[in-house]
Simulated assay, not measured.
Amino acid sequence: MNAESPTPATLPHDRVAELSHDFRLANARLTRRLRQQRANDELTAGQFSALCTLFSDGPLTLSELSEHERVTPPSMNRTVNALVEAELVQRENAANDGRKVMLAPSAAGNALVRETRERRDAWIAQRVMKLSPEQQQVLAEATLIMKELADS
């Protein structure tokens, strides 16, 4: 921010509310556009999110996955059943406890997540390359702020 830009503490309440509203709408619109870049249109957003969590953090139990995704275990069970049926997730017995069932992405599930990430990154990269160097710098700074907001 330059010296003339107000700091967040000096923004009037109505301006903070307007900025928050505009940010939320822009973020939602960008999210919808990115969702369109999936490699598989047949999965729901919840199914793809669960698959991505398993890709990043797996293998996980059903309860761990439902906690991570902030849904109930019965709801996650339906999601996992659909992913298993689509051969994107596999159930395996835990090595240290045969009573526990672990969920992990299959080779096809891993490939789907990788391809979707590549499509989304390429879509964004094409648009970022069209920005001026100044806009790219602002975007880099905004990205750090967005990460802070997401982690708070």
Rank of each mutant, 00 (worst) to 15 (best):
residue 2 N to S: 14
residue 2 N to H: 14
residue 3 A to I: 03
residue 4 E to H: 15
residue 4 E to D: 15
residue 5 S to V: 11
residue 5 S to D: 06
residue 7 T to I: 13
residue 7 T to N: 06
residue 8 P to W: 08
residue 8 P to Y: 08
residue 9 A to I: 09
residue 10 T to F: 07
residue 10 T to K: 09
residue 10 T to C: 00
residue 11 L to S: 03
residue 11 L to C: 06
residue 11 L to G: 05
residue 11 L to T: 04
residue 11 L to A: 06
residue 12 P to K: 11
residue 12 P to L: 07
residue 16 V to P: 02
residue 17 A to W: 07
residue 19 L to Q: 12
residue 20 S to E: 06
residue 21 H to I: 15
residue 22 D to V: 14
residue 24 R to Q: 04
residue 25 L to K: 08
residue 25 L to I: 11
residue 26 A to Y: 03
residue 26 A to D: 02
residue 27 N to Q: 06
residue 27 N to Y: 08
residue 27 N to D: 05
residue 27 N to W: 07
residue 30 L to R: 01
residue 30 L to T: 08
residue 31 T to N: 12
residue 31 T to G: 07
residue 32 R to D: 09
residue 32 R to G: 06
residue 32 R to I: 03
residue 33 R to W: 04
residue 37 Q to S: 04
residue 38 R to F: 00
residue 39 A to T: 06
residue 40 N to K: 11
residue 41 D to G: 04
residue 42 E to V: 00
residue 42 E to D: 06
residue 43 L to Y: 05
residue 43 L to N: 02
residue 44 T to A: 10
residue 44 T to I: 05
residue 45 A to P: 07
residue 46 G to E: 09
residue 47 Q to H: 13
residue 47 Q to F: 12
residue 47 Q to M: 12
residue 49 S to Q: 14
residue 49 S to G: 14
residue 50 A to F: 07
residue 50 A to H: 13
residue 51 L to F: 08
residue 52 C to A: 10
residue 52 C to N: 11
residue 52 C to Q: 11
residue 53 T to E: 02
residue 54 L to H: 03
residue 55 F to W: 13
residue 55 F to R: 14
residue 56 S to E: 09
residue 56 S to T: 09
residue 56 S to Q: 10
residue 58 G to E: 01
residue 58 G to N: 01
residue 60 L to Q: 12
residue 60 L to P: 08
residue 61 T to L: 01
residue 62 L to W: 02
residue 63 S to Y: 01
residue 64 E to I: 00
residue 64 E to K: 02
residue 64 E to R: 01
residue 65 L to H: 04
residue 67 E to K: 01
residue 67 E to Y: 00
residue 68 H to S: 01
residue 69 E to Y: 01
residue 69 E to A: 08
residue 69 E to S: 04
residue 70 R to S: 09
residue 71 V to I: 05
residue 71 V to A: 02
residue 71 V to F: 00
residue 73 P to N: 10
residue 74 P to H: 05
residue 75 S to M: 02
residue 75 S to H: 12
residue 76 M to S: 08
residue 76 M to V: 03
residue 80 V to L: 05
residue 82 A to E: 09
residue 86 A to V: 07
residue 87 E to H: 13
residue 88 L to Q: 01
residue 88 L to Y: 06
residue 89 V to T: 10
residue 89 V to G: 02
residue 91 R to V: 10
residue 91 R to D: 02
residue 92 E to R: 15
residue 93 N to C: 12
residue 95 A to G: 12
residue 95 A to E: 14
residue 95 A to V: 15
residue 96 N to W: 10
residue 98 G to R: 14
residue 98 G to F: 15
residue 99 R to P: 08
residue 99 R to H: 14
residue 100 K to A: 15
residue 102 M to T: 02
residue 102 M to C: 05
residue 106 S to H: 14
residue 107 A to I: 13
residue 107 A to E: 03
residue 109 G to S: 06
residue 109 G to W: 04
residue 110 N to L: 11
residue 114 R to V: 12
residue 116 T to H: 03
residue 117 R to A: 14
residue 118 E to R: 15
residue 123 W to R: 06
residue 123 W to T: 04
residue 123 W to C: 10
residue 123 W to N: 08
residue 123 W to P: 03
residue 126 Q to H: 10
residue 127 R to F: 00
residue 129 M to H: 04
residue 133 P to R: 11
residue 135 Q to I: 03
residue 138 V to H: 09
residue 139 L to K: 00
residue 140 A to V: 13
residue 140 A to G: 08
residue 140 A to M: 07
residue 144 L to S: 05
residue 144 L to T: 08
residue 145 I to A: 11
residue 146 M to N: 14
residue 147 K to N: 10
residue 148 E to A: 15
residue 151 D to L: 10
